Simulated assay, not measured.
Amino acid sequence: MDLPPMQVQVDPNEDTEWNDILRKHGIIPEKPPSPTPIIEEALREAIQRAHENRLEGKDLDELDALEDEEDEDFLNQYRQKRMAELSALATASKFGQIFPLQKADWSRDVTEASKEAYVVVNMISSNTESRVAADLCRQMAAKFGDIKFTEISARLAVENYPEQNCPSILVYRNGDIQKQFITLKELNGVQTTVEDLQKALVDIGAVKDNDHRILPKRTSDEEFHRNGRLRGSKVNNAYNDDV
């Protein structure tokens, strides 16, 4: 009498001689590679990138304050890079104010101008949000001179334009609208701040996310070094915990 085959429960992930035999004969699949080396390598690369980019976003005064802590050649490279960035911004910063816009000049002052730089059109009325938007755009224009900020009464731009749609902020680049905000609702309403508008421009690509003009200033070199050590400690601890 033939006995039925025995049903043996096998954990295919176990490292046993029996499992090796089963894998050799294709009875169970090969054990997948351990993710640990991949995780370790990703963590090492992340730590290395953080170390290499540790000077990103620092202004010239902050770089000077690190002379005793950083390699001189490496620090000079970043100092020259930052000076080049500042020079490029100074060259591009040819606006720096709000430009009143006329409907007849829209093609020239907005569509064509946007082929050279980002153009922000603020269509306003007399309501509260329009006054908030106008003030924010004035601050932004002074801060980001490489972006052209314009302003026009909505009723002069579009006949019978609904006041409840004001302000309407249009962001142009390369002749096309890249983003539009109908009122400040999408930002933060009447509580919208310069920081909210900056973030919107970063999301659009009009401002780089590492632009020194939007990075918060440290209150002191001591706070900067303390926070830097804290961040480094957290990264190293995370790495040690995982490996």
Rank of each mutant, 00 (worst) to 15 (best):
N76K: 14
N76T: 05
N76G: 15
Q77H: 13
Y78E: 15
Y78L: 10
K81L: 14
R82W: 00
R82S: 09
R82I: 14
R82K: 12
M83K: 15
E85C: 01
E85F: 08
L86C: 05
S87I: 08
A88D: 12
L89F: 10
A92G: 09
F95G: 00
G96K: 08
Q97W: 02
F99N: 09
L101A: 03
L101P: 02
Q102C: 00
Q102Y: 06
Q102K: 09
K103R: 14
K103Q: 13
D105V: 04
W106Q: 01
W106T: 09
R108K: 09
D109K: 01
V110G: 01
V110T: 03
V110C: 02
V110L: 04
V110Q: 00
V110F: 04
V110D: 00
T111D: 11
E112G: 00
E112I: 09
K115Y: 03
E116R: 11
E116N: 12
A117Y: 06
Y118C: 05
V119T: 06
V120K: 00
M123C: 06
I124P: 00
I124W: 05
S125Q: 06
S126Q: 10
N127C: 02
N127W: 01
E129L: 07
S130Y: 04
S130W: 03
R131P: 01
V132C: 09
A134M: 13
D135G: 11
L136F: 10
L136H: 12
M140Q: 10
A141P: 13
A141G: 12
A142P: 02
K143F: 06
K143D: 07
G145L: 15
G145H: 14
G145T: 15
D146F: 13
I147Q: 10
F149E: 01
F149D: 01
E151L: 10
E151H: 08
E151S: 10
S153R: 13
S153H: 10
S153M: 11
S153I: 11
A154D: 06
A154N: 07
R155H: 13
L156W: 09
L156S: 14
E159W: 12
E159S: 15
N160A: 13
P162F: 11
Q164R: 09
Q164G: 02
C166H: 02
P167K: 07
P167S: 06
S168T: 13
S168I: 02
S168H: 03
I169H: 03
L170F: 13
Y172H: 08
R173F: 06
N174V: 01
G175E: 09
I177L: 03
K179N: 00
K179H: 04
Q180W: 00
F181H: 08
F181G: 05
I182F: 02
I182P: 01
I182A: 05
T183I: 05
K185Y: 06
K185C: 02
E186K: 06
E186L: 02
L187S: 04
L187V: 02
N188E: 07
G189K: 03
G189F: 07
G189R: 03
V190R: 13
Q191S: 14
Q191A: 14
T192S: 15
T192G: 12
V194P: 03
L197P: 00
L197C: 11
Q198W: 06
Q198G: 11
Q198K: 15
K199W: 05
A200Y: 00
A200N: 06
V202M: 07
V202I: 14
V202Y: 00
V202A: 05
D203K: 05
I204T: 09
